Simulated scan of single mutants.
Amino acid sequence: MSNFRHMSLSFMSGIVFGTGFILMFLYYQNSSSTGFWRNLPVSVEKTDKKYDKPSKYDGKSNIHYSTNRNTSRHLLANHSDYHHYSAEDDNRTAKQLYRRVRVLCWIMTSPATLLSKAIHVRDTWSKRCNVRLFMSSVENKTFPAVGLPVREGRSQLYEKTKEAYKYIWKHYKDQADWFLKADDDTYLVAENLRFLLKDYDPQRPLHFGRRFKLFVKQGYMSGGAGYVLSKEALERYVHGLDTKKCPKGGAIEDVEIGKCLEIVGVEAGDSRDQKQKDTFHPVNMKFHLKPEPIPQGNFMINYDYYPSCRGIECSSIYPISFHKVTPDEMYVYEYMIYHAKVYGVAHTHPKT
């Protein structure tokens, strides 16, 4: 009798334990990807392709893939997914403008700053360009960066700009309507750039940016704040270089391209918003938004084409760019612009 009781208790304990284990297994199996099961190895279908074409400036077209920090691959040319928006956001207007106003962004970088600065541009705002290219003097296939036939140094910035735009015209002219240049310490809001450009015809010879008034009759655009050329403007610029209609130029990149664009009949556009507030900013956010007068001797006082001021009331609610942004600040901008929200406040936007 004692043995029978012992066997019965063991049998019942086994049933209880086994049932509990099965229920726990089913619970975790059907739960979201959190907890213990997330860390187990799973089989993932490999869908990325490898391309052998070089990104060296050798006259051959190329499509770039880049491995980011979590080893997933994403296409740098013709990048068109919208995973960077929150699922609950209504991004229909942004998607429409993405398809309608195609922007190629090329970022001026160098071997010395590729992994200290450009990588943070790659991982933040440049994802929202239709096409993005990183231009250096040395090819980097894994980043990737295009190697242009130039030397590095401030005195070579205009040479790099010329070669970059010639490369883009040869290989990417049909993949975008507007062509933006930015530095690897520039932060840009691509959606607001498209909002500015949406009513302009890319077949008109136009360029936009932070307009400065010295050295060029119609003004020129700040290189640090970034500037964007229409397709017609880019064609005229490259033709001006090829025919030597434009002089070879000096070392100051933004001044020299401004001179050439004026020679070939490209108009300098007004990038301010409807309230005449600035959208392109040649310094970072903390400088432009601080409610103090611009310090005496600051370059903006002498350079700005339009009246200069400083403070929140001077900047557009649809800012396009900021310059001299540190790597750490890139992620602050990214979070505050695309992720942070104010509870109880719904924003309205003009109709497109």
Rank of each mutant, 00 (worst) to 15 (best):
A340T: 08
N70C: 13
D184E: 01
H64M: 12
Y27M: 03
V101F: 00
Y82L: 09
Y187H: 09
E334R: 03
N68T: 04
H171A: 08
E191S: 05
G153M: 00
I107F: 03
L197T: 11
F134K: 00
H74V: 14
V146C: 04
L229S: 08
K244N: 15
N3W: 14
L157D: 11
R194Y: 10
Y27N: 02
W125K: 01
K351N: 09
E88S: 13
N3M: 12
N3D: 13
D242N: 15
A346R: 09
K127G: 05
W106M: 09
I301K: 07
K351Y: 09
A118F: 09
T124A: 06
Y82T: 10
S32V: 08
N3K: 13
K290L: 03
P205E: 00
I301T: 08
T109L: 04
L97W: 15
Y158T: 02
L193S: 11
S230V: 04
Y318D: 00
G14N: 10
L180C: 11
A87C: 02
N130Q: 10
L114M: 08
Y318L: 12
E256M: 04
G209H: 01
S8N: 08
H349D: 07
T348Q: 03
G265L: 06
Y305I: 06
E139A: 03
K160E: 06
K50Y: 11
V264F: 07
Y331Q: 03
Y305W: 14
G258A: 09
T109R: 08
G297H: 05
A225V: 01
D177N: 07
M135E: 06
A346N: 05
M336C: 09
I320A: 07
Y65Q: 12
D242P: 06
S10M: 07
S80L: 05
F322S: 15
Y172F: 15
D278S: 10
S32L: 14
Q296K: 10
P149R: 09
Y338M: 08
Y28I: 00
Y333S: 04
W169A: 15
L148D: 06
N91I: 11
S80C: 04
L193H: 11
T47Y: 03
D52G: 07
R5H: 13
K231C: 00
E313Q: 06
L206P: 01
S137Q: 05
S8M: 13
V216R: 03
Y318Q: 13
A164R: 09
F134G: 02
D254S: 04
M300E: 12
L234H: 09
Y333H: 15
K217A: 11
P144A: 06
E232A: 13
P247S: 08
R210E: 04
H74T: 13
T19L: 06
S31E: 07
F4V: 13
N78K: 05
G153D: 01
G14A: 04
D177R: 05
L76P: 01
V16W: 14
G240N: 01
A94P: 02
I317G: 05
S271N: 07
A182M: 14
P144C: 01
P144F: 02
S80E: 13
K49S: 13
D123A: 12
F21T: 14
T279M: 10
F11S: 04
S66I: 11
V146H: 04
T326E: 04
E232P: 03
S222D: 13
K259F: 02
R122W: 03
K259M: 06
N192L: 07
K244V: 09
K248E: 14
M336V: 15
F287V: 12
G226V: 01
